[in-house]
Structures are given as structure tokens and as C-alpha cells.
Design a protein around this nucleic acid. Structure first.
Lengths: 223, 223
DNA sequence: AACGGTGCGGTACCGCGTACCATCGAGACG
DNA sequence: CGTCTCGATGGTACGCGGTACCGCACCGTT
């Protein structure tokens, strides 16, 4: 009769009840009852009441870790990060309206919002460790790795939220653009060791003084 | 006899017990008992068991909000952010060993770590809103504001953790350096509107090609 | 001395999460 | 076909965090 697995029935019941009565007004018994199972079974499949409406982060975290680990070539590090972030974004997008309903809940309920933030921090940690290893033990690299990891995750969340709010229908393209901006923020000059004088002539829509200021800043940050 | 206020006694008891038995092995009754009060009194002063060992974030959040709100001059926006971040850092540093003990706990106990992360996110939100308003409704400003807020908070946390781990004795100076790096990352050319061609001649220790690449990147991120 | 406010303790209750045990159904095997 | 095993389920009881409510003692005021 009910070919739908217990886990899925619990998820459906939880989303429906949270939407109807609100999160705090829904007890674990309510969810189990609507799913047609006992309360024990609920906690057997999900660690907590919150877990029911959150995707399987453990699995996705493992995927991210694996994806980053299998990219040791120094040159492809940024590519690995970008592709991994896109992978995570697409996971959410695939969920469709379910992700939007979760977003509506996390926007209203402080408990769920905190939970979401905590999981995001775990992703950020993976990216930070990867970037830090990629940058090596240079002085200031730890800070730069932390800043870059934060930027990567923020870019992802920014685009994801825009998609959740239906502000965009092309989340993948927007993520690429956002990641391009992130990479350009942290781009370092290539490691050429020779000394010299640079003379650059360029056409730009802005005030030459402003351009010169930009250049001075860009070079200063490298020293 | 006991001139020490109830609130402080509870904090002392909580830190001591968490350190001795661990967080989960300590019940709310244990804390109240050691503080010489009833369990009811504990929850009258602190919203939850976790709250006892966390500083008064509500108050500090209000201070941050107020500090940012009283800085509308466009030119001093970065200064306002920097000074506000330093203000928060000094709050922690003033706590001394108590902050370090809390750090030891948040490093081990997932529940407390998640709590800490959630509060940090609230600070980040304040900075994001302030920076976004400062940047105005320009296209891409929302993303840049989010990235910058994340960077500001990450820089703060990076330096704070270094101080907590006794990796530095000059947290304020290190924060200034970190914030300088953050600002340089996000520095924009001044808003001159005129068109023109820039010719720049500069002396630099690096390969002219590398310098040119840096400049192209710096200008591209503006478009 | 009567009064009201304030801080505290005690009790009861709800709900989450865990531990433990009983049960049932689907094969495996004699 | 009977029985045994095993995995999944349900039920019960418990610990603990957090809330609501009530009663009490200690204040200063009038």
C-alpha cells in the first residue's frame, strides 16, 4: 500500500505541520502520528526534530571534502573551489520548492536559522582548510585563507538566497559571476621574481587619478 | 555575608562545573546548587544553561548597532567599522582567562560552538546592513557588502582566536593590520565620473607583466 | 502595624531525546 | 510446515531543559 519509505513520509509530515501550525507548535508526536509511525521511529531515522527538515548535510559534507581532496594540482585549486561551491548550490536548487519552504522556516524561526548557520560554518571550515593548505605557510596566509573561505561561502549563500527568493532564475550563472568577483578580490600577481619598471597605458572610463589610486592600492596590498 | 551578586556566583559555578565535569555532565541543578540558589533563580537570570557562560551579547549587539548608527558621514564609514570591530575585540580581551576558558569549551562542545557561531552571525548581519547602506543600491553592492561583512568578522575572529590561543600579545595591533588588509581588498576607486586615459609609470620590484596583470584585475573588478 | 513591591524557592508540567524491552513479519533452514 | 533469527517497529519509562504558577520572606512607605 504505502510504497513511500518511512523517511520520506516523516519529511513530508514535518514540512506540512511546520507550515500549518508553526515549528514550536508541532511536537515530535504530531509528526510521527501524521507519518503513521511511532515517535521512536522518528528519532531512529533523524537525530532530532530539526533534522527532519534539513537535508543530509553529513553526506554533502563528505562529498565536499572528497571533491576538494581530489584536487591537489596547485593551478586548479581555484577551479576546485568554484566547482565544489557550484555543486553545493545545485544540490539546493534540485530540491526546488522544498528548499524554499525550508527557507521560509529558517527566516522566521530563530532555532532553525541558528541551525542553518551552524551547518554553513562546517562547510566554511572545509573550504578554509583546503585554501590554507593550498596557500601554504606564508605569513598572513592563514588570515587570507580565512577571508577567502568566508567570501566563497558568502557568495554561495548570497546567490542561493536570491534564488530562494525568486530574484533570479539563473543561479548557476550568478554564482559563476560572484565567484569571479571573489577570485578577483584575492587574486595575487604571478610570482615573477625579476625587478623592473612597469609602464602601463590603458583606456578607462574613469578619472585617471582614480585609476592611479586603484593601482597604488592594488600594488600596496601585495607588499 | 555573600556580597557577590547572584548572577556572578552563577557564572563562576557554571565555569567551574563545566571545567570539572564537562558541559553535558553538568545539570542546571548542579549550577544552581553550587551557586547556593534554586534552579528557578538560575533561569530567572539567564535564559538557558548555555547563556550563563556567554557574555551579554544582547547588550554588546546594541552597542555595536548604536556605534554604527552614529556614523553617517560617508568618508568615515570604514573608520566606523574598524573602530567598532576593535571595540568588540577589546570586550573579549578584557575578560582575560574567562574568555580563554570559554574558548576551550566552545572548541570541545559542539552545542556551544554552534551557539557561538550563531551569535557571530548576528554581528555579521549588523555589519552587512551598515555596509550595504553605505554602498548604496549600486548593482553588485549587495554581494560586495556581504563579502566585506564576512571579511570583517572573519578578520576579527582570526585575531581573537590568536589571542585566545596566546599566539599574540598585541591583539589590537594585529586587528588593525588585519583590517587594513580587509579594507585594501575592498578598496574602490574614488567615484570620479570623467573619462580618460591613464598613463602610469611606476617602479616595482616585480615583473612588469605581473604588475600589469594585477592592474588589469584590479580594474576589472570595478566594472 | 498594615501595605505593596521585589527577589527567591518549590512544585508541577510540557516536550525533546535516550534507553530498554516486547513485538511482528520476512526469510533461512531443518 | 514449524522454528529460529534478524531487522524494523512500537511502547514505556526516565533524565533534563525550560516555563508557569504559587507561596514566602524581606524590604521601605504610610
Amino acid at each position: 500500500m504505502t510504497a513511500i519509505p518511512v523517511r520520506d513520509r516523516l519529511v513530508d509530515a514535518a514540512f506540512a505541520l511546520f507550515d500549518e501550525r508553526g515549528y514550536e507548535q508541532t511536537t515530535a508526536d504530531d509528526i510521527a502520528d501524521r507519518a503513521g509511525v511511532g515517535r521512536t521511529t522518528l528519532f531512529r531515522h533523524y537525530r532530532s526534530k530539526e533534522d527532519v527538515i534539513f537535508p543530509d548535510h553529513d553526506r554533502l559534507l563528505a562529498i565536499v571534502k572528497e571533491r576538494l581532496a581530489t584536487a591537489s594540482k596547485a593551478d586548479t585549486a581555484i577551479v576546485a573551489v568554484t566547482e565544489t561551491v557550484r555543486l553545493v548550490l545545485l544540490r539546493y536548487v534540485e530540491e526546488g520548492d522544498r528548499a524554499r519552504l525550508r527557507y521560509a522556516l529558517t527566516s522566521r524561526i530563530a532555532t532553525l536559522r541558528d541551525r542553518e548557520i551552524a551547518t554553513v560554518a562546517r562547510y566554511q571550515r572545509l573550504f578554509r582548510e583546503f585554501i590554507a593548505e593550498w596557500m601554504g605557510p606564508a605569513p598572513g596566509a592563514a588570515l587570507r585563507a580565512e577571508l577567502m573561505a568566508a567570501a566563497v561561502v558568502s557568495a554561495h549563500n548570497h546567490v542561493l538566497r536570491r534564488w530562494l527568493r525568486r530574484d533570479t532564475t539563473e543561479p548557476a550563472a550568478e554564482l559563476d559571476a560572484a565567484m569571479t568577483e571573489v577570485v578577483s578580490l584575492f587574486a595575487e600577481p604571478s610570482g615573477g621574481k625579476s625587478n623592473g619598471t612597469a609602464v602601463i597605458v590603458l583606456h578607462d572610463q574613469r578619472d585617471p587619478e582614480a585609476v592611479a589610486a586603484t593601482i597604488r592600492r592594488a600594488l600596496r596590498q601585495r607588499s
